[in-house]
Simulated assay, not measured.
Amino acid sequence: MRILLFLATNIAVLIVASIVLSVLGVDRYISNDGLNLGSLLAFCAVFGFTGSIISLLLSKKMAKMSARAQIIDSPANHKEKWLLDTVAQLAHKAGIKTPEVAIFPSHDANAFATGWNKNDALVAVSQGMMDRFPPNEIEAVLGHEIGHVANGDMVTLTLIQGVVNTFVMFFARIAGYAVDQFLRKDDEGGVGWGYYIATIIFEILFGILASMIVMWFSRYREYKADIAGAQLVSKSDMMAALIRIKKESEVSHMPETMMAFGINAGKRPTLGELLASHPPLDDRIKALANS
Rank of each mutant, 00 (worst) to 15 (best):
P75I: 13
A76P: 04
D108T: 07
A121L: 13
I200F: 09
K235T: 12
G152M: 00
Q181C: 10
M212I: 14
A198P: 02
L35I: 15
L209G: 14
P105G: 05
F217A: 15
E256H: 06
A265E: 10
R68D: 09
D131S: 09
I72K: 01
V191I: 08
W116S: 12
S52W: 07
A265D: 07
L90M: 11
T114H: 08
K267R: 13
L5Y: 06
L205K: 04
A45S: 14
E250C: 03
G95D: 02
A140V: 06
N151D: 09
F261E: 14
L281I: 14
F171P: 06
L232E: 08
F43V: 09
N119M: 11
M169H: 10
G272M: 06
L242K: 02
I103S: 01
S126L: 03
P279V: 05
V141Q: 01
V125K: 02
K185I: 08
V26K: 14
L90G: 09
I245A: 09
D226Y: 01
Q70H: 07
E222W: 03
L57D: 05
L159S: 12
V163N: 00
I227K: 13
A289D: 09
L37M: 14
G115Y: 01
G162L: 07
P105M: 08
L57T: 02
F202W: 14
L84I: 13
H107K: 15
W216I: 05
V191M: 05
P269M: 10
D85H: 14
S249G: 10
L40E: 11
T156S: 07
L37C: 05
A124L: 03
A69R: 04
K64N: 03
A140I: 07
T257P: 08
F202C: 12
L90D: 00
K185G: 12
G262R: 05
S249Q: 12
F206Y: 13
F261I: 05
G115K: 01
G207M: 10
G48F: 02
D85C: 12
K185P: 03
L41Y: 09
Q127K: 13
M62E: 01
A276S: 15
A113P: 04
S66W: 06
I15V: 01
A67L: 11
I201P: 00
L288H: 09
G176D: 10
A76H: 06
I208M: 15
T86L: 11
D153A: 01
L232A: 00
F47C: 07
A102N: 03
I146K: 02
D283I: 07
Q181R: 14
L281N: 13
G128I: 08
I160C: 03
P280S: 13
T98R: 15
V163S: 01
D282L: 10
W82V: 01
L183S: 08
I54M: 11
D282H: 04
L271P: 07
A178R: 01
N165G: 08
G176S: 13
H92F: 15
M212Y: 08
W193C: 03
S277A: 15
